[in-house]
């Protein structure tokens, strides 16, 4: 760990990950790059790499990227911590919340 290179970078945007991308499943078609209304993503400079989340804090959570992603499992929507919806089981009262 002591050899880990640490860069001096500004604070990470908050929230910084509106979607979780699985690089093993993503086929780098960049449909999300094409349609995101506010241009959250850019294509990866490395050919075949997953899109890069560049303007994370501009996301307005319309969900179009994940809705229209043609590759199942490549992109999972990730609600910011303060915005995760909650529910409860009517019979047992057990509380649920998105992870």
């Amino acid at each position: 760990m002591s050899e880990q290179k640490v860069y001096a970078i500004p604070n990470v945007q908050t929230p910084n990950m509106p979607v979780i991308i699985n690089p093993d499943v993503c086929i780098a078609c960049y449909k999300c790059v094409q349609i995101c209304p506010v241009d959250v993503f850019i294509p990866n400079p490395k050919e075949g790499g997953p899109p890069i989340i560049l303007h994370a804090e501009e996301c307005w959570y319309c969900g179009c990227c994940a809705n229209d992603c043609p590759t199942p499992g490549a992109m999972t929507f990730n609600w910011p911590l303060p915005l995760k919806p909650r529910w409860r089981n009517k019979e047992t009262g057990a509380v649920g919340q998105l992870k």
Partner: peptide, 24 residues
């Protein structure tokens, strides 16, 4: 509805079943 398909899908994937669950 606008911007809500993703909410329905993520709730479903997250285990929320509205035949038994009440939404906060």
């Amino acid at each position: 509805e606008s911007t809500t398909k993703i909410m329905v899908d993520t709730l479903k994937d997250g285990g929320c079943d509205l035949s038994r669950d009440q939404l906060l």
